[in-house]
């Protein structure tokens, strides 16, 4: 069974280590992964900023790359890309019936990373070990818009040595919001600082998430708080794939 893997553009551009960890995890589980060369970005930043028409060629490239008979399943490492493809592309393709149809078909065999492991493969204990205190950011796209609530927590629960501490309002937005963070940096900054504070307040040494953009935002917030003295210790920011790949 071939699985077409969608890492998301940020993994390719900024955080290859997250993609590597995810590939390790999935391959150990026996998955045969393919990375189509035409994978670049889902383009959600365009639609979410109102540029629907600009999103059309980007979305077509994604569908052409991933909707192929030789791929049995589609797995997205980042919840927000998954949401864009299955929930937003129908809006992008409003006037493109052929692509709309293909998107719907692709959606039927699409999984977000944690959902795929827990609900498709039926695995929770992947033999990972990670001896530290961890809190988890329940990102909007994974938790609310895709409705995937339990899988990441079940996976974390099965990691040896991992001590989980729930943060306050774990499902409150981190303030990234795509171009929102560039267009309204003051508001976005306030939201991410508050998110960071709830993370700091747990006392955990590591914050984990299943959505790469949120992690980038939270990491940027924590680093800034660290450098201007609002945070006096190091807090690691990790993708859940990196925890599941860990043997430490």
């Amino acid at each position: 069974m071939k699985i077409a893997f969608f890492p998301g553009c940020m993994v390719d551009m900024i955080y290859p280590e997250i993609g590597i960890a995810a590939v390790n995890v999935l391959e150990r589980l026996g998955c045969d992964l393919v990375l189509p060369d035409e994978q670049v970005c889902c383009g959600q930043g365009l639609l979410n900023s109102g540029y629907r028409d600009y999103n059309i060629p980007v979305a077509k490239m994604v569908i052409d790359a991933y909707d192929r008979p030789e791929y049995d399943l589609f797995v997205s490492l980042t919840g927000s890309c998954m949401n864009a493809i299955i929930n937003d592309y129908p809006i992008v393709f409003e006037k493109e019936p052929a692509y709309l149809e293909r998107t719907k078909k692709l959606a039927e065999r699409s999984y977000e990373f944690t959902d795929f492991i827990v609900n498709y493969l039926g695995k929770t204990d992947l033999g990972a070990s990670f001896h530290d205190t961890v809190t988890f950011h329940k990102s909007c796209h994974v938790t609310r818009l895709l409705g995937i609530k339990e899988p990441p927590l079940k996976l974390l629960e099965a990691v040896e040595g991992l001590e989980y501490i729930e943060m306050e309002h774990a499902d409150r937005c981190c303030g990234f919001g795509g171009t929102f963070s560039f267009k309204q940096p003051e508001i976005s900054g306030e939201i991410v600082y508050e998110k960071c504070q709830t993370i700091i307040d747990t006392g955990a040494n590591v914050v984990v998430g299943a959505d790469v953009p949120c992690l980038m935002n939270i990491k940027g917030g924590l680093e800034r708080m660290r450098s201007d003295g609002r945070l006096d210790r190091d807090i690691r920011v990790m993708h859940i794939a990196q925890i599941l790949d860990a043997r430490e």
């Binding site: 955080y15 590597i20 990375l35 940027g220 800034r224």
Partner: peptide
């Protein structure tokens, strides 16, 4: 203005993927 921004990585994930040897199940 409010956060640090992680820069582009020197290595692409796609390059790693192309060259990597799949792990045994």
């Amino acid at each position: 203005s409010t956060r640090d921004f992680d820069g582009l990585s020197k290595d692409r994930f796609r390059t790693w993927f192309k060259n990597h040897k799949p792990l045994a199940a």
